[in-house]
Amino acid sequence: MPRAKDAFDELYPCEFYTPEELLDADQMYTIAEIGRLLQGLEPDAELDEGTEAVLVDWAVPWVMVNAGNLIIAEPPTDDDPGYYGLKT
Score class of each variant (00 low, 15 high):
M1H: 11
P2G: 04
R3A: 09
A4P: 12
K5G: 15
A7S: 14
F8N: 10
D9M: 14
E10H: 11
E10R: 09
L11E: 06
L11M: 10
L11I: 11
L11T: 14
P13H: 05
C14W: 12
C14I: 07
E15Y: 11
Y17N: 04
Y17K: 13
T18Q: 11
T18G: 09
T18W: 04
T18V: 04
E20A: 14
E21V: 07
E21S: 13
E21Q: 15
L22T: 03
L22I: 12
L23A: 07
L23C: 06
Q27K: 14
M28A: 05
Y29M: 03
T30I: 01
T30K: 02
I31Q: 06
A32L: 00
A32H: 00
I34Y: 00
R36A: 05
R36L: 03
L37R: 12
L37M: 07
L37C: 02
L38S: 02
L38T: 00
E42R: 04
E42L: 14
D44R: 04
D44Q: 09
A45T: 15
E46I: 08
L47Y: 04
D48Y: 10
D48A: 02
E49T: 06
G50L: 04
T51D: 06
T51A: 12
T51M: 13
T51W: 13
E52H: 08
E52W: 07
E52L: 13
A53P: 03
V54P: 02
L55R: 06
V56N: 05
V56G: 05
D57E: 14
A59T: 02
A59P: 04
P61E: 08
P61M: 12
W62L: 05
W62R: 04
W62V: 01
V63Y: 02
V63E: 03
M64D: 15
V65P: 09
N66C: 06
A67H: 05
G68W: 14
G68Q: 07
G68K: 12
G68D: 10
N69P: 07
N69C: 05
N69A: 13
L70C: 12
I71E: 07
I71Q: 12
I71F: 07
I72C: 11
I72T: 14
I72N: 09
I72A: 15
A73Y: 11
P75K: 12
P75F: 08
D78Q: 03
D78T: 08
D79H: 08
D79W: 01
D79E: 15
Y83C: 08
Y84G: 00
Y84S: 01
Y84N: 01
G85I: 01
G85C: 09
G85S: 11
L86Q: 03
K87M: 14
T88N: 15
T88D: 08
